[in-house]
Simulated scan of single mutants.
Amino acid sequence: MATIIKNRNKWRAQIRKKGIYKSASFHTKAEATRWAYALEAQIDAGEYNTTPNILFAELIDKYLKEVTLHKRGKKEERYRLLRIIRSNLGNIPLPLLNKEHFRQWQNQRLTEVQPVSVARERATLSALMTKAQEWDFIKENPLKTLEKIKTPPARTRRYSEEEINSLIFVSGYTPTQPPTSIQNRVGAALLFAIETAMRAGEITGLKWEHINLEQRTAYLPKTKNGYARTVPLSTKAITILKHLSQLERDKENTAFQLTTRRLDAVFRKLKQKANLHQADLHFHDTRREALTRLAKHLSVMELAKVSGHRDLSILQNTYYNPDISDLVSKLQ
């Protein structure tokens, strides 16, 4: 039942019904009563629409300021959403926005970039629309029922011993002296990644205060999925860190004294020097190589603890790629 009260020289009507709260002021009690009864009838009939009359671009802007701003990957997400704001999709009024608009956007993007990139943008949009539901801006997320994007199979590329040796050789890294140059340290980072299954960003962000050489652990307070984890270190990984400890500390107190951008750029140069520039080899492939090697000694749950995977299917299908001959040797 609506509440109608007099406030100075106006009448204020308030409605709280089925989770909806609305209020408005009128010059007469009769006007307030008519408005309240009409609105309650709409709510009871399921016809009341809480969607604000704004452009989709305005919803994106609200999401950028209130949600994206607090994410670790805010820079990349902001870039994706600003691109969408500038697209035709951003000019659609929110009350009119439907699945067909997203289908048109998706089909257009598939002519411009790879399906994997479109899938990433769509995931961001879906998270935004889910948040809009929480804000009571929309009733349903139209992306939930839009046909899925066909993406290529998960990457399965592993390093060969020859590729590893070639990259380390051209980097100039040796276990007999400290890695004083940037190329040396990128070579060390490559070997360290294969020993630990750590991501490039986790390696470049690794600080000495988070390393315990005696207990052979490295603590990662910030990771890609937002959960901290502690990584066990092999004897080879410890050896690499001991070489790095002989260097003068940088102001950030990082072990490898590299940024992710610098590591990526130098790694590409090393591939050129090693004549591997056409080998379809990424630094991130070290993670798959490391986890496949570790799987010979650790159970799947232990492997997930090392890698930080919370979805075991991703660990199995994307990052574990054993040589079938190794599995055959385990059979009777």
Rank of each mutant, 00 (worst) to 15 (best):
A13T: 11
A13Q: 13
A13M: 11
A13Y: 10
A13V: 15
Q14Y: 10
Q14G: 04
Q14R: 15
I15C: 11
I15S: 09
R16V: 08
R16Q: 09
K17E: 00
K17R: 09
K17F: 06
K18P: 01
K18E: 09
K18W: 05
G19Q: 10
G19W: 07
G19M: 14
G19D: 08
G19F: 02
G19A: 12
I20S: 06
I20E: 05
I20L: 12
I20T: 04
Y21T: 13
K22Q: 12
K22V: 15
S23Q: 11
S23M: 07
S23D: 05
A24H: 03
A24I: 00
A24N: 15
S25L: 15
S25Q: 15
S25M: 15
F26M: 04
F26D: 04
F26G: 12
H27V: 14
H27Y: 10
T28S: 14
T28C: 05
K29H: 15
K29E: 12
K29S: 05
K29L: 13
A30T: 04
A30L: 00
E31T: 13
E31L: 15
E31M: 14
A32N: 05
A32K: 02
A32G: 08
A32D: 10
T33E: 14
T33P: 01
T33Q: 10
R34F: 03
R34N: 01
R34P: 01
R34K: 13
R34W: 00
R34H: 06
R34Y: 02
W35K: 13
W35T: 02
W35V: 09
W35N: 01
A36E: 00
A36N: 00
A36F: 00
A36T: 00
Y37K: 03
Y37N: 08
Y37Q: 01
L39D: 03
L39G: 04
L39M: 11
E40C: 14
E40Q: 15
E40P: 01
E40G: 02
E40I: 14
A41Y: 05
A41I: 06
Q42M: 01
Q42H: 00
I43T: 07
I43W: 01
D44M: 09
D44S: 06
D44G: 07
D44V: 07
A45G: 06
G46V: 14
G46M: 10
G46N: 06
G46P: 04
G46A: 08
E47C: 09
E47W: 05
Y48F: 11
Y48A: 07
T50H: 04
T50C: 08
T50V: 12
T51L: 13
P52E: 13
P52M: 14
N53I: 13
I54V: 07
L55H: 02
L55K: 01
L55Q: 04
L55E: 00
L55N: 01
F56L: 12
F56W: 10
A57M: 00
A57R: 09
A57Q: 01
A57N: 02
E58R: 03
E58W: 05
L59Y: 08
L59D: 04
L59C: 10
I60H: 02
